[in-house]
Design a binder for these strands. Structure first.
Length: 479
RNA sequence: CGAGGUGUGGCGCAGUUGGCAGCGCGCUUGCUUUGGGAGCAAGAAGCCGCAGGUUCAAGUCCUGUCACCUCGACCA
């Protein structure tokens, strides 16, 4: 350890400085670099590879549920953005404007899309005429811009990468169902692909998307007990349809407005991966989104037969469909171990002269450093099991942490005290008034993360004012 | 936008009363090494964030400015 500290700029420990630990991992694992534009990051190959895998996992799910990808323009004319009142009020403070083309001032300025509801609506108004045109289940993979004042890699950047789904339906019921289906899809994606357990529920009115009737959310808990809004789905009702005149002729020859949804997951989910699974030695990646699921490290690779054996091992696993890195660089083995641990590679296979003689290799799982010897002729059966067990452990560990840090509180004093002293969420009643919600925010800096579906338990009272609770709510501090 | 902090080779830092810009890591080349961040040798690399000012002389003093980081407020 002392030698390690001497040799290498180590990652700040989580205990010492969580923010710094986070930034250290982003930079040292080569996920991203700062760019010359404040608040914008450069996704480096390793970070981009993670994002590509995330997009692939999600896109597969979108396609399987009947969604189609499209591509809308980067710019929104001011007049279009202003068509829906709540929407423009929510986003106007943080949009970037294009005012000139070359030297010429534009007749109408264009905003760089902060989200694309207005563009989809404008298009839908044009292409939707009949009930036969519905539903429209569109999605796009793009970047958007929000002129944030303070930024952090992945969690809050001025430009960020995401997918935004925008759908139009004949009925409110169908649109609400889509909103809930996509919420379920998001939750499944986070839990299975990213091994991140989430709470799901509805946002309060003050926390919901600008222009939405309802916003649903999946909330994850970071290692420091803070919440990360990981994905949201919005039921937009027919408000946008009315503002943009999106009407169709129904089976009964009546003209009706469509009901819409929108939903998104962004590159901030990479921040979530870091802060849920990472440890003091770096990143820990779930196999589904690890650029390399395993790294093969030859030991004493200059010796007769070692490199060949390593290549053979890597080749066989690659042929089985695993993403494999053979690290035959001229670094010391110990250096490679640390490097790939920092980068979160789930599984490491070491193979050296001793192993070759015994017909085996050494397998080490990233999350728990468990080391075992595996016969080379069994490796192709063992690797899928090792990887799947690792994902299960990662999920179980994160879930246990989440659950053990949810505190039920029924009075204001213990609510405030708990928020101040214990990292995590509080589950408590809320009367539904904005005053009580604002008081929580002002006095604790925590906010309502999501409302639990269904009626609150019998006799539950608002943790702020003591009146009967309308909702059971998860409260927490958030990124 | 408020409060605090930091700007010196790629990274982390030192730089005293103003007087030749340094150290560690990394990088390059060669040889020896290889089961937890190797050793030796020889190299390359710095408009000291930027702009003014004081001075014979500024990394150092003064003024302004910009950028970045942390903590708040705001938001994915």
């Amino acid at each position: 350890m002392s030698k390690k500290e001497k040799m290498v700029q180590s990652i700040t420990s989580r205990e010492e400085d969580f923010s710094r630990w986070y930034t250290d991992i982003c930079l040292q694992a080569e996920l991203c670099s700062y760019s010359s534009v404040r608040g914008c990051i450069i996704l480096r190959p390793y970070g981009y590879a993670i994002w590509e895998l995330i997009t692939a996992e999600l896109d597969r799910r979108f396609k399987a549920t009947g969604h189609q990808n499209v591509m809308m323009p980067l710019f929104i004319p001011e007049s279009l953005l202003q068509k829906e009142k709540d929407h423009v009020e929510g986003f106007a403070p943080e949009v970037a404007w294009v005012t000139h083309g070359g030297e010429e001032r534009l007749a109408e300025r264009l905003c760089v899309r902060p989200t694309s509801e207005t563009l989809f609506c404008d298009h839908y108004a044009e292409i939707i005429e009949s009930w036969r045109d519905l539903p429209k289940l569109y999605n796009q993979w793009v970047s958007v811009v929000r002129w944030e004042k303070t930024t952090r890699p992945f969690l809050r950047t001025r430009e960020f990468f995401w997918q935004e789904g925008h759908t139009a339906h004949a009925t409110a019921e169908e649109a609400v169902q889509e909103t809930l289906d996509m919420l379920a899809l998001y939750a499944e994606f986070f839990e299975n692909a990213l091994a991140i357990p989430v709470l799901r529920g509805m946002k309060s009115d003050s926390e919901k998307f600008a222009g939405a009737v309802n916003t649903y959310t999946v909330e994850a808990m970071m290692h420091d007990g803070k919440a990360l809004q990981a994905g949201t789905t919005h039921y937009l009702g027919d408000g946008f349809a009315k503002a943009f005149e999106i009407q169709y002729t129904d089976k009964d020859n009546e003209l009706r407005y469509v009901h819409q949804t929108s939903w998104g997951i962004s590159s901030r989910s990479i921040g979530g991966l870091i802060m849920v699974h990472g440890d003091d030695d770096g990143l820990v990646l779930p196999p589904a989104v690890a650029p390399y699921q395993l790294v093969v490290i030859p030991v004493a690779q200059h010796k007769e037969g070692v490199l060949e054996a390593a290549r053979d091992l890597a080749g066989r696993l690659e042929a089985d469909g695993f993403r494999v890195l053979l690290d035959d660089s001229d670094r010391m083995p110990g250096w490679k171990f640390s490097e790939h641990e920092m980068k979160g590679v789930p599984l490491r296979l070491e193979i050296g002269p001793r192993d070759i003689k015994e017909g085996r290799c050494v397998a080490v799982t990233r999350d728990n450093r468990d080391k075992r010897e595996i016969p080379l002729d069994r490796i192709q059966e063992e690797v899928p099991v090792l990887l799947s067990d690792l994902r299960d452990r990662m999920f179980a560990r994160a879930k246990e942490r989440l659950e053990s840090r949810i505190y039920e509180r029924d009075n204001w004093d213990s609510f405030v005290e708990t928020l101040a002293e214990l990292p995590g969420f509080i589950l408590a009643g809320w009367c539904g008034s904005e005053d009580c919600e604002t008081k929580v925010k002002e006095e604790t800096t925590a906010s309502s993360r999501c409302l639990v579906q269904g009626e609150p338990p019998e006799g539950m009272t608002c943790v702020v004012c003591g009146k009967p609770a309308q909702h059971q709510v998860y409260w927490g501090k958030a990124y």
